[in-house]
Amino acid sequence: MKLKYLSLLLIVFSFISLFIGVKDISPLDLFSLTESQIQTLLVSRIPRLAALIIAGVSMSIAGLIMQQLSRNKFVSPTTAGTMDSAKFGILVSLMLFTGATPMQKLLVAFVFALLGTFIFMRILDRIKFKDSIFIPLVGLMFGNIVGSITTFFAYKNDLVQNISSWMLGDFSTIIKGQYELIYISIPLVILAYVFANKFTVAGMGEDFSVNLGMNYKAVVNVGLVIVALISSVVILTVGTIPFLGLVVPNIVTLYIGDNLKKNLAHTAILGAVFLLFCDILGRLIIYPYEISISLTVGVIGSGLFIYLLMRRKAN
């Protein structure tokens, strides 16, 4: 698939996304918009579209970085405990400051996500049995454990349902004034692009990168910071979107192979297209109600993940 077609698809989906919703706006109205239609577009539709694209791009890139750093195709924020650690962080921020501001939440969530991912990377170092299937298994287990620690505190503080809502990815609540945090991801994605080649080298291992004269630890840390920050931002503005960072880079590898610089653009755009597609689907299936994005992505993503695993086994 050419990048050109992928971009075209992105534009088409974005267009569709703008015109679906309870408030009727058709493309034909575009030049004769009423006041309330303009309002809907500005307050809800356009922010939603922006959030979708940014979340899709940044989560896929985060997944790609993690896969490069760990040299494992099946590692991603969902399968490395990053998401669960971020959630734990949000809980802690809610416990520490009553009525935490988004910025406070983000900061605490980020610290926890970084810590969680760091612990996971440490665990990876300790594991001698580096089976490519075993690693994500450990990561998911680790995530579950962080989750159960979260539950422990949530239960004591009557925050279980509150935490549940963070579990849920949902774009229907995105409106102007409440989602702008997600723009933090944009510079991060650019940073990822700058560092792309270094991540590839770092993925070859510490000895290998030191031999090439690279500061291994610094590069890995930059990667982990990007991943943790992106995950926290997305979880705070949108919620959990399972498997996105895992499925998208893998699909890109399927059709263009393993060249990171080249993959980045494809991964970014495909991530946005995939997320838009799932969102549109969720909005149409039980129209005028919505199915949350984490459910559509969860079902489609896990199906794809299992397919990818099967494929890998067949080879």
């Binding site: 998911l140 849920l168 949902d170 498997f243 199915i291 984490s294 459910l295 969860g298 299992i306």
Partner: peptide, 16 residues
């Protein structure tokens, strides 16, 4: 485990 994550997504959708 993946199926588990999927079930979880579905449950949290309903929970909310």
């Amino acid at each position: 485990l993946i199926m588990g994550t999927m079930f979880q997504s579905a449950s949290s959708f309903m929970e909310v």
